[in-house]
Design a protein around this nucleic acid. Structure first.
Lengths: 146, 146
DNA sequence: GATAGGACCTACAGTCACTGTAGGTTCAAG
DNA sequence: CTTGAACCTACAGTGACTGTAGGTCCTATC
């Protein structure tokens, strides 16, 4: 039963079905009434996926890591480089967020309350020239962490 | 012409049209041939939007901020609280990413190369129990920074 | 054996903030 | 008058889910 697997892994039922749909989880056996029945390997695999997601890996990266994990005799150089890539991404995200944090702080500290016309927050937002640090480019990101 | 506005703000043409579609940018006048023509206020507004996005504000928050900016006599308390909320979010994202970074580092450092069977990276991913810090819950996020 | 209700099923739409594509039109330069 | 870049609309796709509608199945209780 999918609900039990969901409870044990802290993953939503729909998410499990979604992982199956995109081929990240293998199709389990079904009961006569067409309901999914899982075993220990499914639990292990899903735990791997969830943990990797918590560490910020993309589903694509996880797919690669699972392929590796399925074949214990291969070299682990690939796993290592995927992890390093992830590490680098996290590092640069932190750096960007810290620049951002400084800028937001400056913005807030300078606001003395009052009318919008004198609001430092609005003023800074309207003019990037008022920023000290280079807080960089659009924050578009699909793989980030709350 | 939309291309010029795009170049001046570092924003893609489609993005400008998208902002218009969702009501973030006002509809500009059109030439006889149905092409958009913009003026200084559009440039100002779009610059505000882009800068706010760079600082990680959601389009919803930007909508509120624009409403405020349009009415200089109102109190800036709302702008201030939106900025503070954003600041708090950035702070907690940094904290989460730092826990994550520590965990990734540990994982990578312990990997001595060799076969997948002995790979520390794979092993840690398979078992959250091997983590020291609590790197928290799913990294689902729509508003993060690259 | 009937029934209630919780858990399950599929299929599809929606989220956020864009980005890309197809297929057609307009504009400015030469 | 022709070329070709820039424009137009409308819609699909991205990542990683989440939510909904409308139906079926399973188990416990009566």
């Amino acid at each position: 039963m999918i609900g039990q697997l969901a409870r044990r892994t802290g993953c939503k039922v729909q998410t499990i079905r979604y992982y199956e749909q995109i081929g990240l989880m293998p199709e389990p056996v079904r009961t006569e009434g067409n309901q999914r029945r899982y075993g220990a390997p499914h639990l292990k695999r899903l735990a791997f996926v969830r943990h990797s997601r918590e560490l910020g890996f993309s589903l694509e990266a996880i797919r690669e890591l699972l392929d590796l994990a399925d074949d214990p005799d291969r070299s682990c150089a690939t796993a290592d480089s995927i992890a390093r890539r992830q590490f680098d991404q996290v590092e640069s995200r932190i750096a960007r967020l810290q620049a951002l944090k400084r800028e937001l702080k400056r913005m807030i500290v300078q606001c003395r309350g009052g009318r919008v016309a004198e609001c430092r927050v609005i003023e800074v937002l309207a003019d990037h020239g008022l920023c000290v640090s280079d807080h960089g480019n659009p924050p578009v990101d699909k793989l980030a962490v709350s």
